[in-house]
Simulated scan of single mutants.
Amino acid sequence: MSDLEYGPVEFVLVGFQGEAPDPGVVDAVRELVHEGAVRIIDALVISRTIEGDIETIEVEDSTNVYGLEDADLDLSGLAADEDIEYFAESLEPGTSAELLVVELLWAKKLASRLAASGGVVLASERIPAPIVNEVVATARQE
């Protein structure tokens, strides 16, 4: 079997104050893209005004501001209106977030290799880093 065209995709919502992310956030995203860990295939910025209104900006028009100048936004628009609404619910008034649609390149390679050998990934569940760290810290105290 040949390699899969796309690997598993994950939505990542990165929150920040104001209208643009901190340079540290921009650098973190750039680093992961440059290392080949992920490929950003769609991105937008969601803002909730002080009045509570939701505004969105397609990142493809200003990729350098958001650290995505090397992103491959060939699937721009993949995040549907329902996705945007879902993630926008978590924003407090006066805050913004970058919604990244991230292709997990390591998982793409794994899925391709498994498929070539007759296997298939049946399910995958992500445990958020804060929860993992809390569980490990608690276990170490016992």
Rank of each mutant, 00 (worst) to 15 (best):
Y86F: 15
A129V: 07
L32H: 12
L73H: 03
D81N: 10
G67D: 00
I57M: 14
D22I: 10
A107H: 11
L110D: 03
E85C: 07
E19N: 14
G36Q: 04
V29Q: 06
E60L: 12
L44V: 04
D27L: 09
I40V: 15
I127Y: 04
G119C: 00
G118W: 09
P128T: 00
I40Q: 03
A28E: 08
K108G: 02
A115S: 15
V121I: 12
E92C: 06
A71W: 00
K109A: 13
D74M: 12
V101W: 02
V12D: 05
I57H: 08
A116M: 03
D70T: 04
V102K: 01
F87L: 06
A111R: 06
P8N: 03
L105H: 03
G52W: 00
V135L: 12
A37Q: 12
P21K: 01
T95C: 10
R39I: 04
S117C: 01
A20L: 13
E55Q: 11
V25W: 03
P130G: 03
L110N: 00
T49W: 06
D53M: 11
G18D: 03
P130L: 01
S62T: 13
P128D: 10
T138Y: 11
G15Q: 14
G52Q: 02
A20Y: 10
L68F: 08
V135S: 06
R140Q: 09
P93W: 01
D53Q: 14
E58C: 02
E125T: 14
I41Y: 08
V136H: 07
V38Y: 07
R126C: 09
K109S: 12
E85P: 04
A139R: 02
L91D: 09
T138L: 10
A37Y: 11
A79C: 06
Y86T: 09
F11D: 13
I41N: 09
L44R: 04
A107Y: 12
V38R: 09
A97G: 05
E31Y: 10
L100Y: 05
V102F: 03
A37H: 14
V65I: 15
I127P: 04
I46N: 03
I40M: 08
L114R: 02
Q17H: 13
V65G: 01
S47Y: 05
I40F: 08
V14Y: 04
E10S: 12
Q141F: 07
I40P: 09
A43G: 01
E60G: 15
R48V: 07
G36K: 02
E60W: 12
A139H: 04
V121Y: 01
V38G: 05
E55Y: 14
S96Y: 02
E103H: 00
